[in-house]
């Protein structure tokens, strides 16, 4: 048995209480939501928090408000499970990219447990890190935990572990924001700004902040899509995630577009110029190919995850094509079944 280390356990009922305890316990404490990322990590001694503050009983974190402000926005509580997100009809209808991302996370059991907030705060991953203590000790620890060298890029001053969250690129393409709550106040940042391109210090969230909800902008005129590369049709983390969201006029001209990448850097990111390239054009095969080439040039996968890196880089433009063609209205069901191994 891989036992968890000892910790103090708090189970507050309210957000204010949770924030107060988190601030009081200091940076060695951690929040636990579904535990599907944190507990395996604690078993492997990646994290050994002095205290766990459970969000399971905290009121209000599972709320969904759909356009209640009259502006068409939607707010999803960070404590919703990924299954809750997948089964939310309004998400499927208005934010297909988010639905497709959530539905491809891990497995049905893990989606029943894992939360949206936990998915956004997921630890970065690396083949030299996601191993048990003895394995890591045997090859000598790396700088992300207990050591001082990076085994992937030995000359690198920073850890290049991979951001492996599926929902973050989808939410970045959708232009979503997150709300962060602490004992000293509350703030909103875009999902893109929640991340640093650093495998160790990967979040801009302060240790005393709790992610409470995700705010999705009005969806009218927008279509979105998410495509994930992984070895198996279940279980596996992404080794590439491509998310796109496009707003088109009634004649099919692109008014606004965003393309985001996941699992090819230490953070999920918006490919700045790709959107601009599409604006004012129709989504023709040529325009799609041009966007695909640009996005592919920004993908820098590292040799620390599953599958061959040259191949992972080589398929980026195809995946951009799948996403944009799905948005254009092409029937992508056969391709989807081949890539995802189930209908989405």
């Amino acid at each position: 048995m891989m036992r968890l280390p000892w910790f103090r356990h708090h189970a507050p009922d309210t957000l204010a209480e949770a924030a107060r305890i988190l601030a009081g316990e200091g940076p060695n404490a951690m929040l636990i939501a579904g535990g599907t990322d944190l507990l395996p990590n604690m078993k492997r001694r990646h994290q050994s928090p002095s205290a766990l503050i459970s969000l399971a009983r905290v009121e209000g974190l599972k709320n969904i408000s759909n356009g209640s402000g009259g502006n068409g926005e939607m707010r999803l509580g960070a404590g919703l499970t990924l299954s809750d997100v997948v089964h939310c009809a309004a998400v499927r209808e208005k934010y297909a990219g988010l639905y497709q991302a959530a539905a491809q996370v891990a497995t049905t059991h893990l989606r029943n447990m894992g939360t949206l907030g936990g998915n956004l705060c997921l630890d970065t991953r690396c083949n030299y890190y996601n191993q048990n203590y003895e394995w890591r000790k045997a090859i000598d620890f790396c700088m992300k935990k207990d050591g001082d060298i990076c085994w992937v890029a030995t000359a690198s001053k920073r850890c290049v572990a991979v951001s492996s969250t599926d929902t973050a690129p989808a939410l970045i393409a959708l232009g979503a924001k997150v709300r962060l709550f602490s004992a000293t106040g509350e703030r909103e940042v875009t999902v893109a700004d929640l991340y640093n391109n650093d495998g160790m210090d990967y979040l801009t969230r302060r240790p005393d902040e709790i992610l409470t909800s995700v705010l999705l902008p009005a969806a009218s005129g927008w279509n979105s899509s998410y495509w994930k590369l992984r070895r198996r049709g279940a279980f596996d983390f992404p080794v590439l995630g491509v998310a796109a969201a496009v707003k088109t006029a009634s004649d099919g001209t692109v008014e606004e577009a965003r393309i985001a990448l996941g699992a090819v850097a230490s953070r999920p990111f918006l490919v700045e110029k790709a959107g601009g390239l599409l604006v004012g054009k129709a989504l023709t095969d040529d325009a799609i190919a041009e966007a695909g080439a640009l996005v592919a040039s920004r993908a820098k996968p590292m040799d620390n995850a599953d599958l061959d890196i040259y191949w992972r880089k080589g398929v980026v433009s195809s995946f951009v094509g799948y996403a944009l063609r799905e948005i254009r209205g092409d029937d992508m069901r056969v391709t989807r079944l081949r890539i995802a191994r189930h209908a989405l």
């Binding site: 189970a11 579904g34 535990g35 399971a56 893990l110 029943n112 447990m113």
Partner: peptide
């Protein structure tokens, strides 16, 4: 290790018993 928690399938290896 799958069991049902309030009727929903979960992995008991990743659930804290105190919760």
């Amino acid at each position: 290790c799958a069991v049902l928690l309030d009727g929903v399938p979960v992995l008991s290896c990743l659930v804290l018993a105190i919760e």
